[in-house]
Design a binder for these strands. Sequence first.
DNA 1: TGGACGTATGCGGATGTGCGAATAAGCGAA
DNA 2: TTCGCTTATTCGCACATCCGCATACGTCCA
Lengths: 111, 111
Amino acid sequence: MPLLPLQEIQLLHNYVCQSVNDPKRIQILYALYDEPRHVTALAELLDMPQPTVSRHLALLRQRLLVTAERSGPAVVYRLSDPRIVDVLEQMRSILREVLERQAEVLDEQSE
Amino acid sequence: MPLLPLQEIQLLHNYVCQSVNDPKRIQILYALYDEPRHVTALAELLDMPQPTVSRHLALLRQRLLVTAERSGPAVVYRLSDPRIVDVLEQMRSILREVLERQAEVLDEQSE
DNA sequence: TGGACGTATGCGGATGTGCGAATAAGCGAA
DNA sequence: TTCGCTTATTCGCACATCCGCATACGTCCA
């Protein structure tokens, strides 16, 4: 795999990496993976103030990771591409492994 | 997939998401995927000041995504788990798709 | 031990990000 | 149009992050 051109790295960072760089946004992505929801439902489920949820959703929508659709007075949000949660799961898997490896090293040192 | 406990989301964010939330760190991860390198080699390859590279590496090492090994006066860094670059590639794939979808929508609107 | 090479760190400033509180704006029903 | 519900936005502040510069630290070898 060749090194990526800087421009492409910028895109990757601006759109995707920044989007997942907030715990609340990660929560929102998981919640939308479960099923599409409207703003108030998300706010109640995740115990966040409505303006906070709305702001995070606006950011995710701007980054094209979620789409919004009006349903009466409410606005239902859904993931543009559910694979974004697969990515988060892969990150978790990597994290689990490196933490375990770290634990082993500490064990060996204490022997 | 159940919603994740907040604590696990925090871990995910602190270790992995934050790590990839900087264009220069993404460049470094790709460069180390290519092959393990020492600080100065990275600095020259990526055209960054040495202290900048060193600081980013320190962060990545603290997050357990890279490991450091002394080799004479130099310190060789390598990826703890190459799958981190697979994750970045998956992000790129998702980004490419949503951007294409966006382009289609704009085309339809202009017809 | 002194010097050269390679790496890490401290500091100050600039920039970016998230939040609370209040409020504006959009939609639907009567 | 007016009210009620839902969502979006504005403002000000607190906090984190990144960088350049200078410098300290580590290691090796003469």
